[in-house]
Structure formats: C-alpha cells, structure tokens
C-alpha cells in the first residue's frame, strides 16, 4: 500500500501577528512555527494505517521554503518513511488551487492508495486543498473525518457534522481523507525515533517542475479587523483584577446577588 500525507507548516496561532510590507499576508519573522494542527491528526492516522497493514510505504509531503523541513522531520520522527519537500519560498503567495495543483502533479503517477491531509490550515483556512487534490487525480474524497478504519480496500469513516452528529461513510481506495481535530491522539516522537528520522530520505524538489496551473484568485490586502468597542479591558495585578471583576459583575449582572 502507498500512502501520502500532506502537511503544512504554520505559525503558532497564539503568536503576535503583523501584516507584511506588501500588505497581503502576515510578516513571517519572529513567529514560532509548528505543524498545522489538523495535519497532525492526518500524520497520526497515516502511521496507524501503515502499522495496521504492515506492508506500506508512507510519504510525507510539504510545500514551502527550507524551514518546512523542520516540521517534516517531526512527521518522519512520528513514523513516516520518507519526505517529499516541494521547495517553494513563495508558497504563501499561492492560492489553494495552485497548492493542490502542485501536490496533484507530484502524486499523479505514483498510485497512492490513500492520501491524508488536514481538513484545513490554521492560517489560511480555505478547506479546499485536500478535495482539490482528489478532483485533480480523479480520486474520491471524504472531508472532516473524526473516525477512520480500513479493511481490505474498504474505508469506513465518520464525518463530523454540526451539532455533534456524525455521518457514517463507506468508500473504496484510492481515496483522499481530510482530517478533523480529535480524529485520534497524535503521538509524540520518541528520542530514538527522532534519531532514526535523521537517516530517512527527505528529498527536495523544485516547485517549478510541478506548478502547471495559473492562480484563479489573488489577495488584495490583509488587515486587522476593527476592534468592536464596548468591551472593558482590565489589566494589572491579579488580585486587584479579581476585585475589579467582582465589582463589575455586581454592577452589571445579578449573578453575585
């Protein structure tokens, strides 16, 4: 079985963001970078599947500059077999259709049985790339998966719908699965596995060889939303803050009466 998992490196969402000089994305300096949270579940599920079927080869793919290799190494340390790094310093300027085009071009003659990815990225959040890859490769796709099992070419998944309801789905491989938070418990790489991962193949491929599509949209500007006034902001010493908040609750609500 051949498995592909596609991951993205994103900033920690707790970071202090600034708009970049072009005004079309966030400034990339002074940020802590990590694996897109949704993709961690994708990597874990791909590894669990590999462990289940035994005879499997699992490739992790990421598009971006050299720094994304750090995140790819985590995926390798978790248990992926090899890495395909699509080297692209301007990946953040590309829209989902272009990113999907690059991945599709990479995957088209490799006969992957299953492709996993997160259902969306935490920064751009389009929720498009996984499904667009499937469309390009003429594979079927199921999104927003919170439960996954595989047996003999058949995949049973549950999709998460609104209100906590789940839809039960049966599909055949080849299949693209986009993963929702909570699908599994992503493992932490162990020290021996981190050491082993250093010896795994991590091949860089120039994006020029794989980008065959034109962008269909562009970012006009990125900006901070206007803060909706009205909210009272309390700052200072924690004990004083507690007193202040109690005062506010007494004045504005009846809950302490």
């Amino acid at each position: 079985m051949k498995i592909l998992v596609c991951i993205k490196q994103v900033p920690d969402m707790e970071s202090k963001f600034k708009v970049d000089t072009a005004g079309t994305w966030y400034e990339k300096t002074d940020l802590a970078w990590r694996m897109n949270e949704y993709d961690e579940y994708a990597v874990e599920q791909a590894i669990q599947l590999k462990e289940q079927v035994k005879d499997a080869d699992l490739t992790v793919l990421s598009v971006g500059g050299n720094q994304v290799k750090e995140t790819m190494k985590k995926a390798l340390a978790m248990g992926c077999d090899r890495g395909a790094h699509i080297e692209d310093d301007s990946s953040s300027d590309k829209e989902p259709f272009e990113i999907a085009g690059i991945i599709g071009e990479y995957a088209k003659d490799k006969s992957f049985d299953l492709i996993f990815t997160g259902m969306q990225s935490q920064d751009r959040g389009s929720a498009q790339v996984g499904i667009l890859v499937a469309e390009q490769l003429d594979m079927s796709a199921v999104s927003t998966v919170v439960d996954f099992s595989y047996s003999d070419g058949t995949v049973n998944v549950k999709r998460e719908l609104e209100g906590g309801v789940k839809a039960c789905i049966t599909a055949k491989t080849p299949l693209v699965v986009t993963c929702q938070l909570g699908l599994n418990t992503p493992r932490y790489p162990t020290l021996p596995n981190i050491m082993k991962a250093k010896k795994k193949e991590l091949l860089s491929l120039p994006v020029e060889d794989l980008l065959k599509v034109e962008p269909r949209q562009e970012t006009v500007k990125v900006y901070f939303p206007e803060k909706k006034g009205g909210g009272l902001v309390l700052e200072g010493d924690a004990a004083e803050l507690a007193d202040k908040l109690i005062q506010v609750l007494k004045e504005k609500t009846a809950v302490l009466a």
Partner: peptide, 14 residues
Amino acid sequence: VCNAKLRRTVKVKT
C-alpha cells in the same frame, strides 16, 4: 485568516 486574528480581501480572476 489565522483564527480570525486577521482578515483578507480577495479578488477572483475567473
């Protein structure tokens, strides 16, 4: 964008 910390204006080309 980024967990609603930022916003993005988009122009469609198709």
